[in-house]
Design a protein around this nucleic acid. Structure first.
Length: 259
DNA sequence: ATGGTCGGTCTCCGA
């Protein structure tokens, strides 16, 4: 079973590149971030025609997450628990039925810049809520994945030029400590486990010819529960997508899970 | 050399 994450940076802008990648990569399930669309305006027919069930959790203008799945989904939940006043669409969760149930959490962790400030406070509070959800799922001993744009550069080796990110919300010590504490509960970073760095990136800025100079960072992550880590058959980063026509600034990251 | 690029949108804000 192939499960992927892809920050598409706008569904309207990616209406050609996303189907092209789906046809080539053929994932069973993909978690999308930054759909930048309300649910009613999402062009679901395009993807249903390719055999995908589409489940969106959008909002106007910014953010927004979604699932596209060729396998049946159940228990679909929208929104990260823990703050009823949070109106940002950054979390979607479902159980995918592939012989045995696997819970999939698609996430778009807040960017947090500028730091310090209210946006950084929101990032840290959001991470605390995510940790609570992860603790609950671990306690239940469920098979689950958390995957998406985590907006965290875990280590210096995950940036081509770490010095540039020294004061950035994606790399501040408190960001990395908070993220690491969550992983240390028992989650496996699938890409790091199978692709030891340095030089493994998932994002290249549109600015400053970052792609041409390979000035990338690794911020799109797939975190596996212990039960899923045992079934990890392969991981990949579809880096070539960044060099295609009208690319997103992120590329797809995927895992292959044994049946 | 304090710039540069995208996407979505009440032409600036978020990344």
């Amino acid at each position: 079973m192939k499960i992927a994450t892809f920050n598409i940076n706008g569904i309207k802008a990616r209406i050609e590149a996303l189907p092209a990648w789906l046809n080539t990569a053929n994932p069973d399930l993909v978690c999308l971030q930054e759909i930048k669309s309300v649910d009613e305006a999402f062009p679901r027919e395009v993807f249903e025609a390719l055999g995908y069930q589409v489940e969106t959790h959008g909002q106007k203008g910014f953010n927004g997450v979604a699932f596209m799945s060729k396998l049946p989904l159940s228990d679909i939940r929208r929104g990260l628990p823990g703050d009823g006043a949070d109106e940002q669409s950054r979390w979607i969760e479902a159980v995918v039925d592939a012989g045995r149930p696997l819970r999939v959490c698609g996430l778009y962790l807040p960017n947090g810049n500028p730091a310090p400030g209210p946006k950084y406070d929101y990032k840290l509070a959001w991470m605390a809520r995510m940790e609570t959800r992860v603790r609950d799922l671990l306690a239940a001993e469920e098979s689950f994945l958390c995957l998406g744009d985590c907006n965290v550069i875990p280590q210096a080796m995950d940036a081509a030029r770490p010095e540039v990110w020294a004061t950035d919300a994606l790399y501040l010590p408190e960001t990395r400590e908070t993220y690491r504490r969550m992983l240390n509960l028992g989650l496996t970073d699938a890409v790091r486990a199978r692709m030891p760095g340095p030089g493994v990136y998932t994002f290249w800025d549109y600015q400053a010819v970052a792609w041409e100079r390979n000035h990338g960072i690794r911020i799109d992550h797939i975190l596996c529960s212990p039960q899923v880590a045992d079934r990890l058959d392969g991981v990949g980063i579809d880096k070539d997508v960044r060099g295609g026509d009208k690319p997103s600034d992120h590329v797809p990251v995927w895992v292959d899970i044994a049946a």
